[in-house]
């Protein structure tokens, strides 16, 4: 059993369809900790000690958020800035997070084809996530390929959202139960409900 910590951030929670559905489902998954950061810190007054203690009590950290302007909602940035302190998360003696894993679950309005050198977003999605990836690296945390949903605004209409939500639940359970195949995942840029590398239960 791995201890999974899910940190969810969406300032427009009220308008959200994708992330709201994802988080609602995630909260029902037993044995993981699912936190709505904007509910916990509506005034951005992040309690650093609490957050660090919480990190230490988990093995896998999952950030779930919508892509906003090729980046994250601002509270995520605030959280990183404050919680990942020198001497705790990085630096000569900052090895407290070493060995824990980091994964992202993101949604983007652009279609997957757009996120390529030929598409109108010009870059693959992973390149926009590279700050997060390098953050994980600096903290000596292996960075797992993100669980991504493209074309997110259409997803509620064409029923891909349901599959995406179900896949999310399976992903979290697999992480929890150590049945997620990290090696297989590593060969992928990002994973989705139909490519999740989960080992069959033994």
């Amino acid at each position: 059993m791995a201890r999974v910590l899910l940190l969810y951030a969406h300032p427009g929670h009220r308008h959200s369809r994708v992330n709201r559905a994802l988080f609602r489902a995630a909260r029902e998954v037993d044995g993981i900790t699912a936190i709505d950061l904007y509910a916990r810190y509506p005034r951005f007054d992040i309690r650093i000690d609490d957050e660090q203690a919480q990190l230490l009590a988990h093995d896998i950290l999952v950030f779930q958020y919508p892509i906003f302007w090729y980046s994250s909602p601002s509270l995520i940035k605030e959280w990183l800035d404050l919680v990942l302190e020198h001497g705790f998360a990085y630096g000569h003696e900052g090895t407290r997070l070493a060995g824990k894993k980091m994964m992202l679950a993101v949604s983007a309005a652009g279609p997957e084809t757009a996120y390529s050198p030929e598409g109108y977003q010009n870059f693959p999605l992973r390149s926009f996530l590279s700050p997060m990836e390098q953050t994980a690296n600096l903290c000596k945390m292996p960075f797992l390929p993100p669980y991504a949903l493209f074309h997110a605004l259409q997803a509620p209409e064409d029923r891909t959202l349901d599959a995406h939500v179900a896949g999310y639940v399976r992903l979290l359970e697999a992480l929890r139960d150590d049945s997620y195949d990290f090696e297989a995942a590593d060969s992928l840029a990002h994973v989705s409900h139909d490519t999740l590398p989960i080992r069959a239960e033994s």
Binding site: H10, P11, G12, H15, F68, P73, A109, L153, Q154
Partner: peptide, 11 residues
């Protein structure tokens, strides 16, 4: 006003 994506109709 904050964080409202365009609606599907708009798109």
């Amino acid at each position: 006003r904050g964080w409202v994506p365009p609606s599907v109709q708009d798109l």
